[in-house]
Design a protein around this nucleic acid. Sequence first.
DNA 1: GTCTATAATTCGATAGAC
DNA 2: GTCTATCGAATTATAGAC
Lengths: 223, 223
Amino acid sequence: MDQVVSAGAATEDGMTASASGRERLLTAAAEEFSRHGYAGASIAAIAGRAGVGKSTIFHHFESKDALYLAVIEGAAGEFARTLDQVLDLDRDVHDSLEQFQVAHLRHLFRNAKVASLVLRELRGEGPGETAGKVRDVVAGNFQRLVEYLAAIRGRGGIREDVDPQVAALTMLSVNAFAFQCRDVLREFPGLDISGDPDQFATAITDLVVRGLNVGPEAEGDKA
Amino acid sequence: MDQVVSAGAATEDGMTASASGRERLLTAAAEEFSRHGYAGASIAAIAGRAGVGKSTIFHHFESKDALYLAVIEGAAGEFARTLDQVLDLDRDVHDSLEQFQVAHLRHLFRNAKVASLVLRELRGEGPGETAGKVRDVVAGNFQRLVEYLAAIRGRGGIREDVDPQVAALTMLSVNAFAFQCRDVLREFPGLDISGDPDQFATAITDLVVRGLNVGPEAEGDKA
DNA sequence: GTCTATAATTCGATAGAC
DNA sequence: GTCTATCGAATTATAGAC
């Protein structure tokens, strides 16, 4: 998929020409789609940014839809591979969840452009046609976390009366929302997640795993 | 907000003509702004939807900016009044937080149009000019929750090593994100928050307050 | 309604790798 | 020689202006 490596100067943007045409197209498409939305991004602009002719796009991808989907599937697939390493039933629950949370937030920042696309899609603001497929791809990764939580719950790793779906949604929501609002949050001294995403992810994990409570037994010892 | 009740037929949409011109303009503006964004919403369209002349808008509001801000401040102010009732230091912590979470999610659904505007603003996608003021308004309500959490932490109501800002952000994030994605979530049997927002808010509160853990003492007593 | 601009897609040809 | 990546030109669809 990326075996063609010819030397080459940088094209527009910071993109190196060393990546294969297909890879460059995916990068350029992510940029254009996230900047202008699906409809607003033109094949011509994507081709221009990638430094190839328009028709080259249709050699690599069936259609504009297919290109859009490929961009999203690329990032989702990469994250799925991360999940294989992180969601390990044999490891400590707290550690696994912390690793998950850190990996997820890192993934959002590393793939900020595509992440914005996916989040827009989840908000229902995407191009109606591809919506279904995008959701399926994302739902796959979501389901992975849900099943992991269900499995450790079966082993007594977490409370029995928590819904794995609700717990999974909570963990992902905080990351997704904080990522979306990272610019505003930068103005809050304690919430600048852009500065240190890992620390934020760790704090969230601690909160979700241990809860706000001082503990079941310390219920009535306050002022 | 709905005390003016004079007889009157419905204008376009489902809007009743019973509200004052100013109120009708705010409703119409919320609709148009959330539908087409700040730039895309025209004064003419807003006036038309409210059933008034264009010049009436500038009688009630200084400018398009001011109208936009008024829409947002209206909803934020209403929520601030709810906070007065909900964030009561004399009540049980879990109950207060649950009431907060329920009230917040209800507020998002009841003011869905304006909420979408505010969320867009927090993502940094709004009209640059008003961004600062919108953030201030929202930050005010956010700060209220943070200070409440800090206060009960001072009394030993919650763990000392949780950051009130992080906890507040977590609670709000889940609601905001779930609200944003309510259409997709409808496809998940256990996550249809539109169907029963209160139940969802309750589940989230339980998770945040008690955590996933089986408890400090019950660490190893399962199958 | 026609005209025009813009955007997606197709076609035919070329150049280089194996 | 075939296969693949590429391109420029041609074709179709659509949306807005007049």
